[in-house]
């Protein structure tokens, strides 16, 4: 058995675990969101299914699964069907490169009388693929998710969806840029674009201390990337009646729904990795630290949703280009000078 095969098998196992954890995370996230929003709104939230309504998401999932799948007689039928799949699948991609724990396997294992060194390709670590250009990969694939939403909006043959699709294109493409620029500071400070190295560089001090402005910019851009309040323009029900996903039902809708929450988790996970020390933390196992940090940021997303109104489309654009982009560039220059001096 070659090393490559071992690598494939181990990566597959890790992928399955990560995807399962992500789906579980989405289920818990949806439940958390509804309960916390209920708490903010002075109401109960779901409390009927199971103890404290904890099975509500499962009930919703079953409902969505068994609902009639209405496929409209749209012109671009293939793309219409493919769009939610693109959205759902591409949302999972960034997790390939995000380190979620320190070491999950021993350095070497004995298999069929043969010792296999697991340190090569970082097989023993809590990351599916420790890519040398990890952060670039993440930035690249996270831009792909725009296609799902765009195609959904465009092929639905619905003007509201279409407007949602138009909005998503400009919003995601502009904020992709700030997202990239805002994390450049971290890469300069760390001097690496390999995700595991970035995490290890934060052993003594989190990057947020060196890059507070970068973190704030990243979170703002992250809200826009995840299309969450106050930047949930693409699906704002009050203007567009849910926007791009209006014409989807059943599992197709569920995929969009899933993608939305995986997006939040992804944005939170990248923030944790780059700014908040990744899986590092005392006493508790590294994987748990990672989950706790991501959960805290997730709750922050919900909190903001309960507090802020929605910005207008032109304000979103001017906020990005007129304020965030110059600040991000200034931050980059200042960081560069500091790095150069030290």
């Amino acid at each position: 058995m070659s090393d490559t095969l071992i690598f494939v098998i181990i990566s597959l196992i890790k992928s399955v675990v990560v995807v399962a954890l992500l789906l579980l995370g989405v289920a818990i996230g949806v439940y958390l969101e509804r309960r916390i929003l209920g708490f903010i709104h002075l109401r109960y939230g779901p409390n009927r299914c199971g103890p404290f309504g904890i099975l509500q998401t499962i009930a919703d999932g079953i409902k969505l699964f068994f609902k009639q799948d209405i496929t409209l007689p749209v012109t671009e039928r293939t793309l219409y069907v493919v769009a939610p799949i693109i959205a759902g699948v591409t949302a999972l991609f960034p997790f390939v490169a995000i380190p979620f724990a320190d070491k999950v396997l021993p350095d070497a294992i004995n298999l069929f009388g043969r010792t296999i060194d697991l340190t090569q390709y970082s097989m023993n670590r809590g990351v599916i693929a420790d890519l040398p250009g990890g952060i670039l990969f993440i930035l690249a694939v996270s831009s792909l998710s725009v296609y799902g939403v765009l195609l959904a909006g465009w092929t639905s043959d619905n003007k509201y969806s279409f407007l949602g699709g138009v909005r998503v294109t400009s919003q995601m493409l502009s904020y992709e840029l700030f997202l990239g620029v805002s994390i450049m500071g971290v890469l300069m400070v760390t001097g690496s674009i390999r995700m595991t190295e970035i995490v290890e560089a934060q052993k003594h001090m989190w990057n947020i201390v060196y890059q507070p402005v970068g973190f704030i910019l990243y979170m703002i851009a992250g809200f826009a990337e995840a299309c969450r309040t106050p930047f949930d323009l693409i699906e704002c029900e009050n203007e567009l009646g849910s926007g791009f996903n209006t014409e989807y039902s059943s599992m197709k809708f569920a995929l969009f729904y899933l993608a939305e929450y995986i997006h939040i988790i992804t944005i939170s996970a990248i923030a944790v990795t780059l700014f908040l020390g990744g899986w590092q933390g005392p006493w508790l196992p590294s994987g748990l630290w990672f989950i706790i940090k991501v959960a805290c940021l997730f709750v922050f997303f919900i909190w903001v949703r309960g507090t802020y109104p929605r910005v207008r489309f032109d304000q979103l654009m001017s906020l990005g280009w007129k304020y965030l982009f110059p600040i991000a560039m200034a931050n980059l220059i200042v960081t560069g000078v500091c790095v150069l001096i030290s």
Binding site: L37, I40, H41, L42, R43, T229, P230, D232, C236, N238, R305, G306, T307, Y308, P309, R310
Partner: peptide, 16 residues
Amino acid sequence: HGHDLGAMTPLFYALR
């Protein structure tokens, strides 16, 4: 009006 502009929470406070 608050809800139209995306602010969800005032809705529940006001209705309370």
